[in-house]
């Protein structure tokens, strides 16, 4: 029999989930609501806000910037992440803990501070406000995620597997290509999707360094500074679907390890 207390605790868990998901659901519902200021009772159903967003050239421009930045970030961050994870897996060397800290520290620095540092440094180099400025910063922020995911997968690989390939006459490179890479491929795809999602959502550092090459979150931030505008909800649904697709693909590839092994 389930006691009264544990029913109460379960209700509390449901309440916590409700609070966490309330804004996500509210934003979706209000994106189809005709009233400019959303409250209950709801107004009538409309796709007006979506039409406004779709017909807005500024939005498409931003979407293009975001997509290109996210794809480039994902590729470069995953390559760097792989090489760092492989370094950690294969080699012991002096100062390794400093090396790992360098790889994993960026997410702990507040975004405003990293944004300001990046703005100042890139301005000094004359690289601020360029089409690639956001990309440079996002690689720093995304590499730790790629590194962690790939390192986890590597730790599931039998260490003697690569050594066996060497003994059988494989060169370092071909052992890597035919033994290590096939094994970590799911993690690489997972890392690509996850880092793309992180980059696609990032607004603070992008706001500092993007200049006129605004990404979607930067446009949202600027709309937010003005009046109440339900277009944000419509863009939010759009961004949510993009990120969720990437995250679900990423999770599917991460979970293949449990089914296969």
């Amino acid at each position: 029999m389930i006691s009264f207390k544990s029913i109460l605790l379960r209700c509390y868990v449901v309440l916590v989930f409700a609070v966490v998901f309330a804004p996500i659901i509210a934003s979706f519902v209000f994106s189809f609501n005709s009233d400019r200021f959303p409250t209950v009772p709801l107004g009538s159903f409309t796709t007006h806000w979506y039409q406004q967003v779709i017909s807005d050239s500024e939005f498409w421009e931003a979407f293009r910037n975001s997509a290109i930045t996210a794809i480039c970030t994902a590729i470069v961050a995953t390559i760097i992440g792989f090489s760092a994870a492989y370094t950690d897996y294969r080699y012991q060397f002096f100062g390794k803990s400093v090396y790992l800290a360098l790889g994993l520290l960026p997410p702990t620095i507040p975004l405003v501070i990293f944004g300001l540092a990046m703005l100042a440094w890139l301005s000094r180099l004359g690289m601020s406000g360029q089409s690639y400025s956001v990309f440079l910063a996002h690689v720093v922020m995304c590499t730790p995620f790629a590194m962690a995911i790939i390192r986890l997968r590597l730790s599931q690989m039998d260490e003697s597997l690569e050594a066996a390939a060497w003994n059988l006459g494989a060169s370092h490179w071909s052992a890597l290509r035919h033994v290590v890479l096939p094994f970590v491929r799911p993690a690489i795809i997972s890392a690509l999707c996850l880092t793309a999602a992180v980059s696609f959502d990032e607004f603070a550092v992008a706001w500092f360094v993007s200049g006129l090459n605004k990404t979607v979150p930067v446009v949202v931030l600027e709309i937010l500074q003005g009046q109440v505008d339900p277009r944000i909800n419509a863009i939010g649904t759009f961004v949510f679907l993009t990120s969720m697709t990437l995250v679900v693909i990423s999770q599917v590839f991460l979970l293949t390890r449990t089914t296969k092994s």
Partner: peptide, 15 residues
């Protein structure tokens, strides 16, 4: 929630 836009969630809380 980590992969939904924080800005959109804050906007929702605003309303």
């Amino acid at each position: 929630p980590f992969f939904t836009s924080y800005l959109v969630r804050i906007y929702a809380w605003q309303t």
